[in-house]
Each structure stands twice: as structure tokens, then as C-alpha cells.
């Protein structure tokens, strides 16, 4: 394994994975014995061929899927030790941007963004924008402003283009000011130009707000340009863990070989 990343010193660790393993049914493990950490404010690109378990690993990191073995510590809290309420409180400081954008199609853009506040506020007032408190509407509009879609606040989510839809998903993820964000191939369903725009916008926003990010991408250039660090998965193991400036295109190509 190539491991160039240096020790983390005194910096705060936002994500620590130890001996992480996962298998589905009786099939071979998706991955096993993974160890890595992500420092506060770091942006890490998780890369690897299809089927290497990138999406599964992301979900294990957020506690959406339980690993078979090993331990995940997120924002200083061990996920396995958490009960329902504590887990929700932790998740209120995290977010997920998915490949399919995952907006509720029949609701307005504004309602979808307000849903990003549901980790911190519960109840019918946060279900649709018409009932939402003024401060929630203002926060959602501010998030839409950041992604340049404030003028589409009342448009139905299923009437957006792919790029607009993903920008709304980013606004929903950012509206609660998360500490840690996971993005699972955020540009996979977009054309190259829209994908480039969305990725640039997403990364500028998270860097400006100092959010720690773990993202996956099949776009090698995105991984190298936007990731401070590359985590490369191959054969269920971490094959690359190095600063992106130190990873060559050839090493990246080998991951997909």
C-alpha cells in the first residue's frame, strides 16, 4: 500500500475509521481492515473502480450502514456507542449529497432546502415551506442564494435541470451548517459542463465554510483537483492514501486497471 500522508499531529480528527470491514451476505467482503482518518477542514477524495465499496464506506462513515467489524468515530463520537437520540444529534452536524440528488420531486425547491433543517428542528412547521418559521425560510433562501437559485425557490423540484437539482441538494446539505459532509459521486448524473460547474461551486462553498468533506468521484481530474488527499480503494483495501499533489495519473489509472 502506498501511504504518504503524514501524521495528524495536534490537529482535530473529524473522522477516524479503524479496522473497518463490511460484507453483504455470504459474498466476499466489500472491504476489510480499513484504517484511515480525516482531519478537520480536509477534503478527501475516495476513488476506486466500480464495486470497490466506495458508497458502502461512505454510508458506514455516517452510520447509515453498520460495519461488520471495526469502529468509526465521527466528530469525536464513536458511532457504535450511540443510541437513537444521540445518533440524530450527531447527524444534525453532518450531511449527504447523493449521486441522484434525492430531492422530493413534488415539493418546491424551498421546501426541499428547509428539510435540511429537520435534524435540528422537528415537526410539521418544517415539512413544507408554507408552514415554516420565518428564520427557517430565511436560512433556506440564504442557502439558495449561495448556489445561485434563489429565484427558483417556488419551482417544483421535478421541474429543474440536473445541474439545478444538484445545486438544490447542495443547498439542502449546507443549510444546517454541517461540520462534516459526504458526497457520493455528486456529478455522476450530470453532463461534463454542468458537472464541472456543480463541483466547482460545491468545493468553493465547503472550503469557504471550513466543512470537512469526504467525496467519491470517477472523474480522476476532479479527485486530483478538489481533493486535498486521495484515498484509493482496490480489492477491498486502501491502495493509496496520499496528498493529491503526490499522486500521479498513472497511480490513479492503476486503481481502475
Amino acid at each position: 500500500m502506498r501511504h504518504k500522508a503524514t501524521g495528524v499531529g495536534q490537529q482535530v480528527i473529524d473522522l477516524q475509521a479503524n479496522s473497518l470491514s463490511k460484507r453483504f451476505g455470504t459474498a466476499a467482503p466489500v472491504f476489510s481492515g480499513l484504517d484511515f482518518s480525516i482531519r478537520r477542514g480536509e477534503c478527501v477524495a475516495l476513488v476506486g473502480a466500480n464495486g470497490t465499496g466506495k458508497s458502502t464506506l461512505l454510508r458506514c462513515c455516517l452510520g447509515l450502514i453498520a460495519p461488520d467489524a471495526g469502529r468509526v468515530s465521527l466528530l469525536g463520537v464513536t458511532l457504535a456507542d450511540l443510541g437513537g437520540t444521540a445518533r440524530r444529534e450527531l447527524r444534525a452536524r453532518t450531511g449527504l449529497v447523493g449521486q441522484k440528488h434525492n430531492l422530493v420531486p413534488r415539493l418546491s425547491v424551498l421546501s426541499n432546502v428547509i428539510h435540511g433543517l429537520l435534524g435540528r428542528h422537528s415537526g410539521p412547521r418544517y415539512w413544507i415551506q408554507g408552514l415554516a418559521p420565518a428564520e427557517a425560510r430565511a436560512a433556506a433562501m440564504a442557502a439558495l442564494e449561495k448556489v445561485g437559485l434563489a429565484d427558483l425557490a417556488l419551482r417544483r423540484a421535478d421541474q429543474l435541470s440536473g445541474g439545478q437539482s444538484q445545486r438544490v441538494a447542495i443547498a439542502r446539505a449546507l443549510v444546517c451548517s454541517p461540520r462534516f459532509l459526504v458526497a457520493d459521486e455528486p456529478c455522476a448524473s450530470l453532463d461534463p459542463q454542468a458537472g464541472e460547474e456543480v463541483m466547482a461551486l460545491f468545493m468553493s462553498l465547503v472550503k469557504r465554510e471550513g466543512v470537512t468533506v469526504l467525496f467519491t468521484s470517477h472523474n480522476v481530474q476532479h479527485a486530483l483537483s478538489y481533493g486535498d488527499r486521495i484515498l484509493g480503494l482496490q480489492g477491498g483495501r486502501i491502495a493509496i492514501d496520499a496528498r493529491s499533489a503526490d499522486v500521479t495519473p498513472l497511480e490513479m489509472a492503476k486503481l481502475y486497471g
Binding site: L62, R91, L96, V104, H115, L118, Y126, V182
Partner: peptide, 27 residues
């Protein structure tokens, strides 16, 4: 219904009743 929106809200710490009302029922 598509589980994606529910998963996105789960990741933000939303309660099940909020996820049902905000994502599952509208879909």
C-alpha cells in the same frame, strides 16, 4: 417510493416521523 430522499434526510439527523411526512408521503 425512492429511498434516496429519505436517506438524505436521515443523514441530517431527521426523525422518522419528519422523514415520513417530508419525503415519503409527498413522493
Amino acid at each position: 417510493t425512492d429511498p434516496g430522499p429519505a436517506e438524505a434526510l436521515t443523514a441530517t439527523g431527521a426523525r422518522r416521523i419528519d422523514i415520513a411526512a417530508s419525503a415519503v408521503i409527498p413522493a
